[in-house]
């Protein structure tokens, strides 16, 4: 099956990915440079590496707490989002539903409001409900923030699936939840995995709501990183170290999900 062209393209893929990621190499290098080397007149490639910035990131910026907060908020909100999005997307994509089109658009349109405008009303709402600076408040906001997106992505993937298996299941008398859980879920694994990853990513990266709705108990990673920008200098070392630290758990998650995506493909091929 492997043609010479494909082999050539495979080598190309490795090269392209390596070049694409070059800026990351620079960030990783910055994280182990002494500060005066970072501020040297020309970019430096040779230096005595130091781990002081990693130390600073954890000691002074309490990064472990930020990682924990981010993990709790993002994981819980992703699970809730995915559950709600899956049943909604199934209804919108595969069930006989009047006005499914309009409904989908309504759901998406609730994400049109620029975050900048709603940050202030969100803050006021959080204050009334006593949810400022709490994990719960952030989870609610991120579920609302991620849902429209997740519904649309999943709906796209579900629309793509062949209809025959589901038909057979219906004829066998399976209920809706059984169909979603036992038939659609395995068939759409790769789509669900991708949707979950990106629901996760959007919450993981989100800055503005986290900035206004948290102050110390529920501070997330992006806000903690923003504290490394001083008015008079940027703490490049700790900042780069923070980027590297926050990437490690993410990479593990994505790598594991990748394997699921391949498994999803294998299951899909059986159909």
């Amino acid at each position: 099956m492997r043609t010479p062209l494909r082999r050539f393209l495979d080598v190309g893929a490795v090269v392209v990915v390596a070049v694409y990621l070059a800026p990351l190499y620079w960030i990783a290098m910055t994280s182990v440079k002494p500060t005066n080397v970072i501020n040297a007149p020309k970019p430096q490639f040779a230096f005595d590496p130091t781990l002081e910035h990693y130390h600073t990131t954890f000691e002074r910026f309490d990064f472990a707490q930020a990682i924990l907060n981010s993990a709790i908020i993002v994981i819980v909100s992703t699970i809730i989002t995915m559950f709600l999005a899956l049943i909604s997307a199934y209804a919108l994509a595969r069930m006989k539903m009047r006005g499914a089109d309009g409904m989908s658009l309504l759901i998406l349109s609730l994400r049109f409001m620029p975050g900048v405008v709603i940050a202030l009303p969100y803050f006021l709402m959080a204050q009334w409900t006593g949810l400022t600076d709490s994990h719960l408040g952030m989870i609610i906001v991120y579920v609302a923030y991620g849902l429209p997106f997740a519904v649309w992505l999943l709906r796209g993937f579900l629309l793509d699936l062949p209809r025959e298996v589901e038909e057979a299941a219906r004829l066998d008398g399976l209920g809706w939840f059984s169909i979603i859980w036992r038939i659609m879920l395995p068939m759409a694994t790769s789509g669900i995995a991708v949707t979950a990853v990106f629901t996760f990513v959007f919450a993981w990266n989100e800055f503005l709501f986290a900035l206004y709705l948290t102050s110390y108990k529920a501070v997330t990673i992006p806000v903690q990183i923003a504290k490394m920008i001083d008015l008079y200098n940027v703490l490049w070392g700790p900042l780069s170290a923070a980027v590297v630290i926050q990437l490690v758990p993410m990479l593990i998650v994505v790598f594991l999900i990748q394997r699921h995506m391949i498994r999803g493909l294998a299951l899909g091929a059986v159909k």
Binding site: L120, F123, L211, Y212, S215, A226, K227, I229, D230, L231
Partner: peptide, 17 residues
């Protein structure tokens, strides 16, 4: 004593809020 440090770029606006 709990010192809460806000990101400086947006701190004026946030503290005014």
């Amino acid at each position: 004593v709990k010192i809460i440090a806000e990101p400086v770029g947006e701190a004026y606006t946030k503290m005014q809020v």
